[in-house]
């Protein structure tokens, strides 16, 4: 039953794929496919973090700003002469700490996640601009570009990173106590408290994981652009949320899956890639993607009502 429910977005993805294959001779070329994967990887990885946050009944509007801060501080470390791996680690830790701060404010001060992360969106973005003086970081070792642009065993390196993150997140959600508690808190947080679950600790863990993945996405974005860009990731939060929601996640919490989120992110990726190939303007693309989000969620709602 659960598997059937996930089928519709998946079918949509396949239909889109086949349609583009027929419509454009350039679509099914290795150049295009690997650029599609590289384009979607950043949103995909952020969306994986957003998945567990949304399952736990929360939301994180600050991920775009966390991405920029992680990317900036990570590349600044490299600029200062630290090794590449240390630079990447800096990006991840910055993401983790930002997520932890969100989680702390939400769990301890009991302010709605929407409000907290709307606030931290401004705080993180502003701090990033302050730290960088609004200027991008360019002095980055050439080898760093491997993260976003390199190939391993004939496919883009980011695909491996994405697969590992996706498998890991799936495992966390379906096979660990943390995942179980995330579902329980999202499904009914009062019942979770009454079952003796340390809800605030697990809420913080959920946002920290979301932040960690966003930090990683920030480093990938920086590697692709070979710049630490303080204005990076503007509006990405909405794409990440859209991917989760198209994939069957519910903003009421308690529902969502890694498979769904990946499909959701790839549907949006294909729409934008296809529009580029077919020469559809950027403006029209935005309209299409917006309409798809509403369509996907209303189909999902109808299904749930009937079930």
């Amino acid at each position: 039953m659960k598997r059937l429910q996930g089928l519709l977005p998946f079918a949509t993805l396949i239909v889109l794929f086949v349609a583009l294959w027929i419509a454009s001779p350039y679509f099914l070329t290795s150049t295009n496919l690997s650029s599609l994967i590289r384009q979607t990887a950043v949103i995909n990885i952020m969306a994986l973090g957003m998945t567990i946050i949304i399952i736990s009944g929360g939301i994180d509007l600050s991920v775009g700003a966390i991405l920029a801060m992680g990317g900036l501080l990570g590349t600044m470390a490299m600029e200062k002469g630290f090794p590449i791996l240390i630079g990447i680690a800096v990006g991840l830790v910055v993401g983790l700490l930002c997520g932890l701060l969100n989680g702390f404010l939400i769990a301890r001060l009991r302010i709605a996640p929407f409000i907290v992360t709307l606030g931290t969106l401004g705080v993180f973005r502003g701090s990033t601009l302050l730290i960088s003086n609004g200027l991008p970081v360019h002095q980055i070792p050439q080898a760093f570009s491997f993260l976003g642009e390199g190939n391993l065993l004939g496919v883009p390196f980011v695909l491996w990173v994405l697969v590992i993150c996706a498998v890991g997140m799936h495992f966390v959600l379906e096979h660990t106590r943390l995942g179980r508690y995330a579902f329980a808190i999202g499904s009914n947080s009062a019942a979770a408290v009454y079952a003796g679950i340390p809800v605030s600790r697990y809420t913080m863990a959920v946002y920290a994981i979301g932040g960690l993945l966003t930090g990683l996405a920030g480093m990938i974005e920086a590697s692709r652009l070979m710049t630490g860009q303080p204005t990076a990731g503007n509006g990405y939060e909405l794409q990440a949320i859209a991917a989760v929601v198209i994939g069957g996640g519910s903003l009421h919490g308690g529902e969502g899956s890694v498979m769904g989120t990946l499909v959701g992110a790839f549907i949006m990726g294909l729409l934008s890639n296809g529009s580029d190939l077919l020469g559809i303007s950027n403006y029209v693309q935005q309209v299409i993607i917006g309409a798809v989000i509403i369509l996907a969620v209303s189909v999902d709602e109808l299904r749930k009502r009937r079930a």
Binding site: H175, R177, L178, F183, A184, A195, E255
Partner: peptide, 27 residues
């Protein structure tokens, strides 16, 4: 306050004692 209605019976029955169905945090 008693049940997570959108979760399976199994998740609800074990909710207050997940420790005893998991090893090192893995269910």
């Amino acid at each position: 306050t008693g049940l997570a209605l959108r979760l399976p019976i199994a998740a609800n029955v074990t909710l207050a004692n997940v420790a005893s169905i998991s090893t090192a945090g893995v269910l």
